[in-house]
Amino acid sequence: MSEKTKILCITCPKGCTLEVSHEGQTILEVKPGCKRGHAYAANELVNPRRMVATTVNIRGGLHPLLPVYTSAPFPKGRIHELREVLRKVEVQAPIRMGAVVVEDILGTGVNILASRDMAQA
């Protein structure tokens, strides 16, 4: 028995409404949409993930906070756990953009990366 689910695509700024026909988790058709849209719809249906950007405390830096982000989309349902962990993380300046701040966070295989260089104050 196939069903239809509407998904707002967030892959690009366009923000298409995708109409996904699927049987359970098996996708039959997505329209309209591009390749990236289709991939997004497939994920969103089964395992929604988001890029997460936030900050962690940094000691001795130009600013008290270092912006960080997930190396890959992170399971949406676990974002609340993620913010709990990152709230307590503190790193030391200087740090380079792309440096791994937390490896394999919460066992998801996703790393937390520094979004920028932060010089020592």
């Binding site: 690009c12 890029m51 950007a53 982000y69 953009m97 792309g98 979004s115 260089d117």
Partner: peptide
Amino acid sequence: LQQCIHNGFGLETFQQDLPGPSYAQ
């Protein structure tokens, strides 16, 4: 950009989804 720490920058320029500070860097 240094305060726009969210993702979504650079898809056109770098074909990558970057946070604001990374794009600036």
